[in-house]
Structure formats: C-alpha cells, structure tokens
Amino acid sequence: MSAFTKRNLLQATDRAPDFGMAEIGQAIFPFEELGATDTGLALHRINPGRRHAFGHRHLAAEEIFVVLSGSGRAKLGDELVELARLDALRVAPETWRGFEAGPDGMELLAFGPRHEGDGEVDPGFWPA
C-alpha cells in the first residue's frame, strides 16, 4: 500500500443517484478511492432549498461536518441548528442528523472514524 493517495473530490464517484438523491445534490464517499482503512470522508453538495432525503445516525462513529460554502440548517434530533460557511459541527454517534441547504445551496465535508455497518437511516426523519 502506498504511503499516500491523492484524489480530487470533484472527480470521485457521486453516489447520490444510488440513494435516490440525484435531484437533491451530490453525495461523494471517496473511502475506497482513497484507499482509506480507518477514516470516513464524505462531500455533500445540497442544492438550494433542498434537504437530505433521510436522517442517519451511527452506533460508534462521531462525525464532524464543515460547511465549505453556502449555508443551511442541521436537524439534530428535534433541534434545528443554523449553519454558515466554515462552521464546524460535531455530532455524537447516537444523534439523528439531517441537513437542509439555504438559498445558495450548501457544501458540507463530513469526516470521522469508519466502522463498517455502523450507520442507520430513517427516511421519515425530516419529512418533505
């Protein structure tokens, strides 16, 4: 295994269509493309005024989300948190989470430890 792997995230595979989220934006999970063994990474690009199609949580993986551009809100359990460019948000594993973009869209970078099979989704977490 190489000592490093470089990959432009905009050239990595967009998985949004696999999750029924193509009209919402992009979801890039470059874990395999980077050859990562322990670190999870995701780039979420949410179109203006749209929100994730489902909420999710983890059993063990704490996540940190960084707003790279735009703004929006995070729904954390029953609480709404406003997000702006360069805000960093730490979310405990068991906390349900979902994201909604503001009028200019929102680009989020998510990272944390990777635990295979650790996630759980709820399609009704943040109804349309």
Rank of each mutant, 00 (worst) to 15 (best):
F99D: 07
L109W: 11
E79W: 10
H58A: 08
L83K: 04
P17S: 06
G119F: 07
F65Y: 14
F65G: 07
E33F: 01
E23D: 15
R45H: 07
P17C: 04
E94S: 12
A27Q: 03
S2G: 06
V66F: 05
L68H: 11
K75F: 00
D18M: 12
L34T: 03
P103C: 08
A3S: 11
F65A: 06
G25W: 08
A12P: 02
A110C: 15
T13R: 11
M21L: 11
G72K: 05
R114K: 13
G40I: 05
F29Y: 12
A42H: 03
H52K: 13
V91E: 07
G20M: 10
G77F: 00
A42G: 14
E62G: 10
T13Y: 00
W126A: 02
F125A: 05
D38W: 01
A53V: 14
G102S: 07
W96A: 05
R73T: 07
Q26P: 01
P123Y: 03
L109T: 08
W126Y: 14
G40L: 06
M21T: 02
G20L: 09
K6D: 06
N47T: 08
E82Y: 12
G124Y: 11
A16S: 14
G105K: 09
D18P: 01
D38Q: 14
A60L: 06
R45S: 02
Q26D: 09
I28T: 10
V67P: 00
A84S: 15
H58F: 03
G20C: 14
A27P: 00
